[in-house]
Amino acid sequence: MDSFSFLPELNGLYNLNWEGKQVKPFGSGHIHQTYKVIDPQQTYILQRFNKSVFKNPEIISHNHELLIKYMDYLSLPFEFPLPIVNILGFTLSAIKEDFFRISPFVDGVCLEEVVEPKHAYLAAKAFAELIISGNNLEIDEFKEVIPGFLDLELRFNQLLEAIEQSKAPIEGEVMELVDFFTSRKFLVEEYKVLKEKLPLRLTHNDTKINNLIFSEDLESVKAVIDLDTIMPGYVFNDFGDLVRTVACSQGENSINWDEIYVDKAKYASLHQAFTDVGKGVFTNEEIKSLHFGGKMMTCITGFRFLTDFLNGNVYYQTKYEKQNLHRAKNQMILLQSLERIS
């Protein structure tokens, strides 16, 4: 639907005068329908919100509106392009059956992978600075965007249920993976202990490298983007997702089993950034938990891939029948590598 029939109402809600010729499809995101809008005064990102992925968009807008009101995000050393508030005071605008939002456009470079450890350091530094910028906010006022999203105990129990009701024979390679991931219950127990000891903080919860915009020379981070998953979480979650996606030698779809391992230089850069930025703010227990974070985030992803395979591939998009099984094996090998270094 690119007729832009929503534009008259959108213009009214934001005091704009946009025309269809200014609105161009943008990016390769798989969740929201995204457009770039070149206005004489400024360039914007316009999104039609995907309600099938985020079933409670009002929770995301609630969290964003709290950030706009109470967070000193202008003091961050990078841009933080939160959605713009409409004339009604909301960041999300309902037009007919859809929700729309508008954010400032930030020009720069998005990386799909990290080649140099210094870029790993810059990425981790930015995400750690974002966590600290929310340090004085009332964390209890923020809502969980996706309930149980990073709950290791919940994901473990979902795996056990999938094993009981498996649509695939549990034998051979499948049995190997089931045995491996069920034997990681000790990580679930460690997670439960840490939850009782560590403070909740405002975390990004999707700290992939392509959720940053770098300067053209790749010497600095210009913006942290993809802000839908910002919600209460633990420092080790954001660090751990960086480890899983930045410090791994191969992407999660790789089946080059012998080439999957932790890049120790990138891992060290990620850890150094979190300890540098968090000094005096993160507790000693939080700093100690960082090594757990890499293992935990890799393990929870392995749980989810294997669960989906056993359930008949109903959640993740796949290109072939065993792709989720192979993704789980990929995460198993990465987890084994992490367990050897931390």
Rank of each mutant, 00 (worst) to 15 (best):
L137R: 00
K208P: 05
Q272F: 14
P199C: 06
K322M: 14
K118F: 10
G312V: 14
T283M: 14
W18I: 12
T207W: 05
I225Y: 02
H271F: 15
H271W: 14
D217G: 07
L212R: 00
M1Y: 14
A94E: 07
Q42I: 08
L154D: 05
V85K: 00
F99Y: 13
I38D: 10
K96N: 13
T318W: 11
E138M: 12
S103L: 09
S254L: 05
N311I: 05
S220V: 15
T43H: 03
S3P: 13
M231T: 07
I60W: 02
P57S: 06
A120T: 01
P40V: 13
F4M: 06
Q272R: 09
E65V: 15
V281L: 07
I45Y: 04
F99W: 09
S52T: 15
G29H: 05
T275P: 13
L212Q: 00
A128E: 00
F180K: 11
D206N: 03
V178T: 06
N15M: 11
M71P: 04
D228L: 02
P77A: 14
Y44L: 12
Q323D: 03
G251P: 14
S337F: 02
L310W: 01
F4Q: 02
D226Q: 12
P169R: 12
N157D: 09
D228K: 01
D241C: 11
V109H: 01
E252I: 13
S337R: 04
K192V: 10
E259C: 04
D107K: 04
M332P: 05
E259S: 04
L88H: 06
E153S: 14
Y320W: 12
S5I: 15
G89R: 00
Y70P: 10
L76M: 09
F54R: 13
K288N: 12
D140A: 08
V281M: 07
Y261W: 14
K295V: 07
T307H: 02
G20C: 07
N256E: 15
A247T: 11
K295C: 05
I95P: 05
E189P: 15
E216C: 14
I333T: 10
I255Q: 13
D263V: 11
F99K: 08
F181P: 00
M296R: 02
T91E: 03
P57F: 06
G240S: 05
H204C: 03
V178N: 01
H30K: 10
S75Q: 14
S5T: 15
F90M: 03
P83S: 04
T283K: 14
K322H: 13
L202M: 08
V23E: 00
P81I: 05
L270C: 06
G29P: 15
S61E: 06
S289V: 07
E65I: 15
I59S: 10
E138N: 13
T318C: 10
D98T: 10
N15H: 10
L152C: 03
L242P: 11
V115L: 08
Q323T: 05
K55P: 12
V85A: 00
D206W: 00
I102W: 01
V221D: 10
F142R: 01
L66W: 03
V178L: 08
L150E: 02
I230N: 01
Q272G: 13
V23N: 00
H32C: 13
I230L: 07
K266P: 12
L16F: 15
P169C: 15
K288C: 14
V174A: 02
D263E: 09
T34L: 08
S342D: 09
G294R: 03
D151T: 00
K266A: 10
Y70G: 11
